[in-house]
Amino acid sequence: MKRLRHTRHTVAIRLNGIDRTGECEPRTLLSDFLRYELGATGVHVGCEHGVCGACTVTVDGLAQRSCLTLAVVADGREVRTAEGLAPEPGVLSELQAAFRRHHALQCGFCTPGILMSCADFLARVARPSEPDVRQMLSGHLCRCTGYSNIVSAILEVASGNEDSPDA
């Protein structure tokens, strides 16, 4: 059993491959911890009740809402955000490049969350159909694009997705 009083505590996570620590209260949301404590401002906050999907990150590989996760619950886990997707500085990942090519973003506020959902989704579903992709995306609200270019970008990447475990 681990008891934490409602005061500040140290939380340690592995963020995009780097061990990081920060201070927070038990009530601190993972989204706030990542943004304001660790500086991962690519995590965007859009609703704080789990509907819009902008704050989606992966924790131990699973896409989830960082606004519905407490930072203390993520303690000791591996967290990834959009900042950690590019293979090296100046080079976009395949998915990021496809988003750019397809004009799959406008204001870009919902985009990092969508990319993180895709990271989990494409690792499990090798050859998703368009309805599969749209259902996965239904966990995200985008107000700019009307979604179709996002769908095209994901389908294009998935069609070359040979190394997926299910392939």
Binding site: M1, K2, R3, E25
Partner: peptide
């Protein structure tokens, strides 16, 4: 929209819970 303060306990067994 931020939670009010609470204490947090991570349980290790159903017995503890």
């Amino acid at each position: 929209m931020k939670p009010a303060a609470f204490d947090y306990i991570r349980a290790d067994s159903a017995e503890e819970v």
